[in-house]
Design a protein around this nucleic acid. Sequence first.
DNA 1: TGTACATCAGTGAACGCGCGTTCACTGATGTAC
DNA 2: TGTACATCAGTGAACGCGCGTTCACTGATGTAC
Lengths: 201, 201
Amino acid sequence: MAATSNTRQRNPRGQGDALRSDLVQSAISRIDETNDVTALTLRGIARQANVSAPAIYHHFATLPMLIDAVLAESFHQLERIVHEAILSESNPVDALTAAGRAYVQFGWQHPARYRLMFAATGYAPDAAQVFTLVEELFQRCVMSGKSASTDPHRDTFLLWVAFHGMATLEKPGRSDYLRLGPLDRLQLVETTVERLACLHP
Amino acid sequence: MAATSNTRQRNPRGQGDALRSDLVQSAISRIDETNDVTALTLRGIARQANVSAPAIYHHFATLPMLIDAVLAESFHQLERIVHEAILSESNPVDALTAAGRAYVQFGWQHPARYRLMFAATGYAPDAAQVFTLVEELFQRCVMSGKSASTDPHRDTFLLWVAFHGMATLEKPGRSDYLRLGPLDRLQLVETTVERLACLHP
DNA sequence: TGTACATCAGTGAACGCGCGTTCACTGATGTAC
DNA sequence: TGTACATCAGTGAACGCGCGTTCACTGATGTAC
């Protein structure tokens, strides 16, 4: 089934840039729906956006540059999601767990895209923004006496590695990968936070 | 630089299967050297093995079946490495740390291949063998009174998730991904094991 | 208000490439008699 | 021991495909006068 070939409405004069974000969104839809990073082709993205392939070159010089834009947007999404999770809780310990849950669920909901984000090298600055968000939160846990950590920077990294591991694993509920049975993985995030963050000091 | 096109020595009569394992090894070399999963093409593997592309069809019906063989071999390698690490230590707690270190280093040494192993669905049985190795070891930690875990199955999973997260991250020493500075990541494996496995009860 | 022109957001056809796969073949090696 | 033949591990040429990219173009929309 090819995408419906509705002729896309042409953008009015000053708003040619509208297609730019449409293309990024189309690329995100494509990788999320197919769950396959190899579906991220220039022609495939053009089809998804109901546009001819050469039209892309008005907005991106090459396919890798379009994918760069997809990655930047994805890191922004992830940061926003984690940030909102943190704001949703009033005390820092609950916020830390909420951040972990939000992070992990982002990975489960967009597996191929999440993998692409961390397979690509050169995204240190974008990843670091999310990391910093968690680090500042963890500092608050320590300062409020809820964590016995003596090395918050290192322990934030330990936490983040565990979140990353959970996010990278197959979404739970599909099959019992590793014969894990009915483990509630969101509950596991909480346990991981308790132990790695040295809570209940 | 293309591979040298030395004409490969033809296998004697009864030993046509020798090419089969050569092809698997060539595929592994290719993904490990290029660190790029898209380098795993049938023609590329044939070039690496100094063989014409159609020769592969004497041994594998399709390219995905060759890649299946690569994955099976890779899981065997990982299991062997972790098993040897466990055997190298006499007490179960040290063995648990050694297993974690060995696991994580496998991921760092073969990044693209490790990602491929866990991106592919349908490898639960192979992954489960490694998991079971760690689980049995952890049971021994609990029985010997070194771990206060009340749910070894779940806690093995927590450990394994953390190992997986560490293995998936960029090999340390290249650049300071996430501005982590001089964190010794192998030391971090030890700390992670201590906390997630409830050691020093 | 009318008209010539510039701008701009695209399109359609074509290119060369590497891919997976198929097909007819080749030539050395073992086996039957 | 000699020879005809079957087996077998490959090879070389060709196919159709989707890809990224280039090029000349089109036609609606705004602007100058």
